[in-house]
Amino acid sequence: MGRIMKSKLVSFTLLSFILASATFAASKNNIKNFTGKTIQGKQIMLSDFKGKVVLLDFWASWCYPCRKEMPQLVKLYRKHKKDGFIIIGVNIDDHSENMKKFLNKLFPQPDFPIVWDSDKKIPAEFDIMSMPTTIVFDKTGKERFRHNGFELSYIKDYEKEIQTLKKEK
């Protein structure tokens, strides 16, 4: 194979992978919805919260960074809940007792809706790539920010994003 041909092949291959990876990395702009039952027994849909900034958190009790994130989300919710902000937790534990055992140990307790998705259909709808995945939606219901995994520094990012989206109409 000639040098120029080899070079073109390599460049094409590399470019393909960059593009393929970029499609995974890009924020989704689709407006998505789901229906779920909270642990309190209430049926909710994501679209019920149009007009509010929504932070959707996919988590599980067996996931260490998820366990680290949850108490931080409880604090975040208490700070912003009066200003048109809501957190919805979607838990995907196989057994709800593991989820409840973890939640019962938290202080203060989370006072935002938590859906137990026993069928694990909701994560597939939202193309979840890691645990936890935290998605922030604007007031129109459009996905604007997405975070994979969790480190404590992410809370500052969530704060900035919530403030930005709250100012929007």
């Binding site: 291959t13 590399l14 992978f17 393929a20 996919f58 996931c63 994560p123 890691s130």
Partner: peptide, 25 residues
Amino acid sequence: VLIFILAGLLDGCATVKPWEKESLA
């Protein structure tokens, strides 16, 4: 490049989704 091609192809080998990994944890 070959390693990255193979690794990229392995993206198709995402056999277990992140929310299905309770057993593996």
